[in-house]
Simulated scan of single mutants.
Amino acid sequence: MGRNIRNHNNRPFEELIDEAASVSVDGWDFSWLDGRATEERPSWGYARSMAGRMAKATAALDIQTGGGEVLAAVPQLPPLAVATEGWPPNVARATGLLHPRGVAVVADEDKPPLPFADGAFDLVVSRHPVTTWWSEIARVLSPGGTYFSQQVGPASVFELVEYFLGPQPPEVRGGRDPGKARKEAESAGLEVVDLRLEKLRTEFLDIGAVVYFLRKVIWMVPGFTVEEYRDRLKALDEQIRTEGPFVAHTTRFLIEARKPLRPGRTS
């Protein structure tokens, strides 16, 4: 989400929501929100750090690649690079971006088993996976290999979620906990070598940005449609015009885990 701020609140409510409801939300490119929403970025710089690891890898797998935008931007890919994706529109988009770079894109249902042999990759990466199948990641990693992932943290953007859905129970707010990720990684036989969590300010500057975001990130308000939430959208539009941007907080965590060279050993 960009910072080249443009004021869209001089446009009518209906025009803003109609525009946001009709624009394509394929892929994982949020550039449509430039000037309409802002989001602080995690300090670790996932794309840059992932690219550095790619340059040193021999065989790499990007799980749930989305539209392939992040992987396509890596300057130096390993000799063997593969990406998986489960949503058909994203499979097509990722294929168009990644095939010219020599990356094989595999249509996968995003559930076990991964369609690869044991120990096939020395690097597995994933940016914002919906689910992390730790046992499968451990299986396809070669001894000494690394899993490197940026994930959505607990109660991310829940100010917006709860505006539409009301207060959420603790088990929902506390989901995607990095501590739980550590335990699951270790239970799968991996050693967690880095784990960091950050809370980041996010601002929605007009109601069109809210509609686009909820259409794209479909698990935030499941089944979201403009028609169903029109009254809440209208009230939020008036709030933004009167009080300024709607402020929420994104949470992200970085996790890096290594497969031991031999069972029971980490080096």
Rank of each mutant, 00 (worst) to 15 (best):
D118M: 07
V23G: 08
P260S: 01
P12W: 06
N10S: 13
L114Q: 11
G244C: 08
V172N: 01
S142C: 07
P143S: 11
Y147H: 15
V210Q: 11
L261A: 14
A60V: 04
A73K: 09
S187C: 01
G52N: 11
L98E: 13
V130E: 14
P263Q: 00
F158H: 12
G175M: 04
G208P: 05
G166E: 07
D237P: 12
S43L: 03
W44T: 06
W219N: 08
V247L: 08
T38E: 11
G153T: 08
W32G: 02
Q64P: 06
R230D: 07
P112S: 05
A138W: 00
E256A: 05
V23R: 14
A47N: 09
A107H: 12
E15H: 11
P260I: 03
W134M: 02
A104S: 14
T250P: 00
G166M: 04
D194T: 09
L98T: 05
K216R: 15
V74Y: 02
G223F: 01
N9E: 08
Q151V: 09
T131D: 11
S31E: 13
A188S: 13
I218G: 01
G179C: 06
T250A: 12
P100V: 14
L254C: 01
P78G: 07
L71K: 04
E14N: 14
G223M: 05
T250L: 10
G66S: 08
P88I: 11
I240G: 08
I240N: 06
L160P: 00
L123N: 01
W87Q: 00
Q76L: 04
E238I: 03
P79H: 09
A72P: 08
V25H: 00
H99Y: 07
G27Y: 11
E191K: 13
N10E: 15
F116Y: 10
R36A: 02
L165G: 00
R101K: 15
G175E: 04
P167F: 03
G66H: 14
R215I: 00
K56I: 14
P154L: 05
I5P: 00
A120S: 11
L190Y: 09
A47C: 15
Q76A: 02
R101S: 04
L71P: 07
I207G: 05
I218D: 13
E203L: 05
F204N: 03
E14D: 15
G96W: 06
G96C: 03
E15A: 10
A92M: 06
P89K: 04
W133R: 07
W134S: 01
G2I: 07
G86I: 04
D237L: 00
G35K: 10
D62A: 13
L97R: 15
S24H: 04
G145D: 00
A181E: 06
A21P: 03
M220P: 02
I240H: 06
N7G: 10
E40T: 13
G67Q: 11
T250V: 03
L80S: 09
P169Y: 06
W28C: 11
F158I: 00
Q151A: 15
L141N: 03
A55G: 13
F213P: 05
D118G: 01
T202R: 07
R241F: 10
E228T: 13
G189S: 01
R265Y: 14
E227I: 03
P178Q: 08
E227P: 08
